[in-house]
Design a protein around this nucleic acid. Structure first.
Lengths: 118, 118
DNA sequence: GTAATCTACAACCAAATGGTTGTAGATGAA
DNA sequence: TTCATCTACAACCATTTGGTTGTAGATTAC
C-alpha cells in the first residue's frame, strides 16, 4: 500500500498542471509514447519556448519525466502521478459517501423498530 | 451512462479550482455538511472577502453550489463534479493501460507460441 | 570544420490570481 | 426602529501565469 503523504504544494502543482488543455494533451501524448520536446512543439500553435515551459510545469508536478536521448529530451507521462491525483479525488468521494452513510443511519434510527438491524 | 461532453474551459476551471489548499478544504467541509460562507470564513486565516472569492471560484467550476437560507448563503459540495474529474483522470489511466496492452501484444508476438493466449 | 537541429534560459509583457480594504444592501434580533 | 450580521461587489496591489523574442550551448549531419 502506498501511503500518500503529499504536501499541499505538491497537490497544488499537480492540479494546476492539469488545469490547461495544452498540458493535458501533452500528458495524453506522452502516456501513449515518449516524445521529444521539439516533436511536441510541432503539434501546437505556439512557440517552442512556450511548449518547453508547459513541459517544465508538468515535470515540476511529476506528471511527466524528461530524459536525454542525444540532443533531444524525451518526455514520458508518469502514470503514478495520475494515480496519486485519482486517490485525492477518491478521498473526496469517500467523504461524501460516509456522509450519506451517516444520514442513512440517522434515518433508520427514526424508523419503526422493524427496520432496525439486529 | 453519462456522456461527458466537457469543454476544455470547463475542465480547466475544475482543475484550477482544485489547485488550492483552501479551496480543497472548503470542498471537503461542504461535502460533509452544508456550511454558510461566514462559517467557512471563520475557519481560515484570511478575510471574509477572500473566502468569498474562493467559494466563487468553486461555484464557477460547479464544485459547490450556493443557495440562500435567510441572510446566509449555504454552500454545498457537488459530488457529481468530483466524479466528472475522476472520469477525466480515468481517461488518462486508460490511455496508459492501452499502451501497456499494445506493448504486451508486441512482446507476445515475439514469444514462443506456448505463451500465446488461446 | 560548417551548418542545421534541439534545448536551455533570460528578459519582457499582458492577463489572471489571490489577497486586501472599503462601501452598501438584505436580513434577523432587540 | 435600531443595531448587528451576512453577503455582494468594487478598487487596488503584488505575484504568478502563459505567451513572446532573442541569445547561446550541445549534439548531429554533411
Amino acid at each position: 500500500m502506498v501511503v500518500d503523504e503529499l504536501t499541499d504544494e505538491t497537490v497544488n502543482r499537480i492540479f494546476r498542471a492539469l488545469a490547461d488543455a495544452t498540458r493535458r494533451d501533452i500528458v495524453r501524448r506522452t502516456l501513449i509514447a515518449e516524445v521529444s520536446v521539439s516533436q511536441l512543439a510541432q503539434a501546437y500553435d505556439m512557440s517552442f519556448a512556450a511548449v518547453q515551459k508547459h513541459v517544465a510545469v508538468l515535470e515540476d508536478a511529476r506528471l511527466v519525466t524528461k530524459d536525454p536521448r542525444g540532443r533531444e529530451r524525451m518526455v514520458r507521462g508518469n502514470p503514478e502521478c495520475i494515480r496519486q491525483a485519482q486517490r485525492l479525488l477518491d478521498q473526496f468521494e469517500e467523504i461524501w459517501r460516509s456522509r450519506i452513510d451517516r444520514l442513512d443511519a440517522l434515518l433508520s434510527e427514526g424508523e419503526t423498530p422493524s427496520t432496525q438491524k439486529g
